[in-house]
Each structure stands twice: as C-alpha cells, then as structure tokens.
C-alpha cells in the first residue's frame, strides 16, 4: 500500500501541466452522524493527458463515486476537482452542465442511448445540445473507426449490445472532450464485444491522444490501460503501471478484496 502524496491545499501539485483531471482532498459523505458513510475519505489523484487509466477496487471502494465527482455528475462533500485549469467544485449547476457537454465524454455500462433517436442522432446529441456542428471529417473518421457506417440509421433497439456501446463511444469521442469517462463499459457485453470496445478505447488514446479514465472491476479490462489506480475504502490504495491481468489481480489480492 503506497502512501498518498501529501499536498498543501490550494497549491497545485507538481504535475499540474500534464494533468487532464486531478482531485485534491476529495471526500464524499452520504448521510450524517452515526449513520454517515464515507464513500470517499480524502482522495488525491491526477490523470495525465493522453493517458488511459483504469480505476479499480472492490465493491464499495468508492470507485464509481470518485468517477462521478471527477466528471461533475455529483457534488463532492469537500476537496477540489480540476479539469485542466477549471475548478469543477466551484461551478453552479448550469456551468457544470455546459462543461460536461463541451469537455467531458461518457461511456456507460448500460450504453444509455436514447431510444427515440437513431444511431447518428445519438452520436451528435451532445454537440446539438451545445448548439455546435460536428466537423464532418472528424465525424466520418470516428464513425469509420468504430465501424458504424452501415448502422447510422438504426435505432438502439435494432442494434446489438456491442454495436450500442460503439455508438456510445462515438458519442463520447465526437466533441473531442478533454477526458472520456467510461463506467464499466464492458459490464453488459460478451467477452468478444468487450475486447473490441477496449481496443477501440485504447486506440483512441494511442492514435488521437484522447484521455480516458475507466472504472472497472475486471482485471482483463484493466490490462488494456496504461496505468491502474487502486482504491479501497474510499482511499487511494496503490497503482500498477503497464498492467497485465495477472499483475492487477495480484495488486487486488494485496488489498484483501
């Protein structure tokens, strides 16, 4: 178990220039008094630009809560979250909403496509909400890389799970966000579709420098990442660089999880 880097609150850590997202002293408490649950009990973490990071930990370790707070979906109880130079923890709801649609991409376990829209409409939705037009060349490139060209007119109900998740990835990549958060992106997929999805995420990091942060509990999925951040009981519990399924598994055992 490694000791978290101590930082003086208010002073940016040394790696500020290269970090796409970072958090300092992040806590999240549900409930109050005796029944209070500390989902996050003081987390300092940073994610470098162009890096594919996996967050891992046993159930209840706070990995999903951490991701929600980093992505501005949930308000932290205390601490700070920075997206580039912007402090998320200071923004009001509407500013956060705009930040999410302009600078953050999401990929969910349950795909979460809108059933009334077809694949193309789903992909361009965040940009439309922002009133922006997608760059056609970039759109074509994303669609081509994800193999969706033949499926653009299909509704989600007419697509397989793997195809739906690829639509969701295209949706996340299209606005060229500062960071893509993926929450158990392979959880609802068979192993072959899962591997495809992970390949796509990794290639987007390698080829276009996209920053990706993925929450997972699957060591094989984590092995696609450049780095694994481990979490236990709401606290950072070590890291694994250049992970393999075996090294991740070993690190997890070390947590007693």
């Amino acid at each position: 178990m490694s000791v978290p880097v101590m930082t003086v609150p208010g002073e940016p850590p040394a790696s500020v220039s290269s970090a796409a997202v970072r958090a300092t002293g992040l806590t999240k408490v549900y409930g109050s008094g005796e029944t209070a649950v500390h989902a996050l009990a003081g987390v300092d973490v940073a994610f470098a630009r162009g890096e594919f990071t996996a967050i891992m930990g046993p159930s209840g370790s706070g990995k999903s809560t951490l991701m929600h707070c980093l992505a501005g979906l949930d308000a932290a109880t205390s601490g700070q979250v920075f997206l580039g130079g912007t402090e998320l923890t200071r923004l009001r709801d509407d500013e956060l909403t705009r930040l999410r649609r302009d600078r953050i991409g999401f990929v969910f376990q349950a795909f979460n496509l809108l059933p009334v829209l077809d694949a193309r409409e789903n992909v361009v939705l965040p940009m439309q909400l922002a009133g922006r037009r997608p760059d056609p060349a970039w759109f074509d490139a994303v669609v081509a890389r994800l193999g969706l060209r033949e499926r653009l007119r299909h509704r989600p109900s007419e697509l397989s799970g793997g195809q739906q998740q690829r639509v969701a990835i295209a949706r996340a990549l299209l606005p060229r966000p500062d960071v893509v958060f993926a929450d158990e992106p392979t959880g609802n997929l068979d192993s072959r579709s899962g591997a495809e999805v992970l390949d796509l995420l990794r290639s987007s990091v390698r080829e276009t420098g996209q920053t990706v942060v993925m929450v997972t509990h699957d060591p094989t999925a984590a092995s696609y990442a450049d780095r694994v951040v481990l979490l236990a009981d709401g606290r950072p519990a070590g890291e694994v660089d250049r992970p393999t399924a075996a090294s991740v598994l070993e690190a997890l055992r070390g947590l007693g999880g």
Partner: peptide, 15 residues
C-alpha cells in the same frame, strides 16, 4: 434514467 442521461450529456435544467 433517460432524463438523467440527458442531463449528464449536457442538457441544462432549462432545456
């Protein structure tokens, strides 16, 4: 859930 997703994707409360 769907409305929550839209909010996550950047739909403001007003929208």
């Amino acid at each position: 859930q769907e409305n929550g997703l839209l909010r996550a994707m950047g739909l403001t409360r007003g929208q």
